[in-house]
Nucleic acid binder design. Structure first.
Lengths: 145, 145
DNA sequence: TAAATAAATCGGAATGATTCCTAATTAAGA
DNA sequence: TCTTAATTAGGAATCATTCCGATTTATTTA
């Protein structure tokens, strides 16, 4: 999603386009697929708009998330992370360096099958695998070597 | 996992078998697949051992989780939940009543494929689908209907 | 069976992320 | 430009969880 399409999403939904929100959008764009947390987003966005407060950052991220403009991810022992990638994918979370990689797969479970078997209708997914990323595996290996 | 096998797991790993831990194990057994949270476990286990403290409950659940005796699950806007079912499965989480259902599937992503494509080696999984359970779907339908 | 000790426990304080509150500000439409 | 509902700032409050230090206890060993 481009900056422009995020802004037009805001307008379409009657949300105001404020300097604070633009600063946060800019940070989200800059961060690419790195799944930043609120504190990092706040720190970076505050450089662009000095008056920005942490509570506004949270309010904004929640608002964006509620409107499907971004996605909120929650993990063990880490602050929430915010994800710009809205396609169905698996998050590969490195337990050593906390890096989060995206692993794109086709829709791996058939929602129709789930609803038929269990009565449960799926609206959203969170698919996470934990382990070690390539870099951390190599480092672990050389330490233990 | 039976109560006895949990206890023998403790002994095997040099962990002490205390009345507090037995109370917590009993609660975990009683709760079946309902994925209780720390506060519920504490409340129920305290009835069995009146001296039990909340911090001990957390310490115990963390210890069990660290040793693979149970599994800790974390969700949005809910306290951690603890899971006795150690087989790979998908958690179906009802957004309305917060019920958590298990949906057993064969291992849906091939770890070898992931490591080959990304260098990431998987050690653990958390697979969650959000939506509405059968009961909540019916209730929503009758309200709107 | 008693002594030794490492582990476990208690309870309260501390933490950290997030939400809540209220007054002041402001974007956007009339 | 005026109006107003939305947004914001900043600080207090919340909630789950962890940390701490002193005490107790399960288990080992003599």
């Amino acid at each position: 999603m481009t900056k422009e399409s995020m802004i037009s999403q805001l307008r379409k939904r009657g949300l105001k386009v404020t300097p604070q929100r633009l600063a946060i959008i800019d940070v989200l764009m800059e961060q690419g697929n790195s799944h930043p947390g609120a504190s990092l987003i706040y720190k970076k966005a505050k450089k662009k708009r000095k008056s920005l407060s942490l509570s506004t950052t949270y309010a904004t991220l929640n608002e964006f998330s509620r409107h499907g403009i971004i996605k909120t991810l929650q993990f063990d022992k880490m602050e929430d992370r915010y994800d710009r990638n809205l396609e169905e994918h698996i998050n590969l979370i490195c337990e050593r360096c906390k890096k989060i990689l995206d692993y794109n797969v086709p829709f791996i479970v058939d929602p129709k099958r789930v609803v038929k078997k269990t009565g449960f209708s799926i609206t959203d997914a969170r698919l996470e695998y934990y382990g070690l990323c390539r870099e951390c595996r190599e480092e672990e290996r050389s330490i233990k070597g």
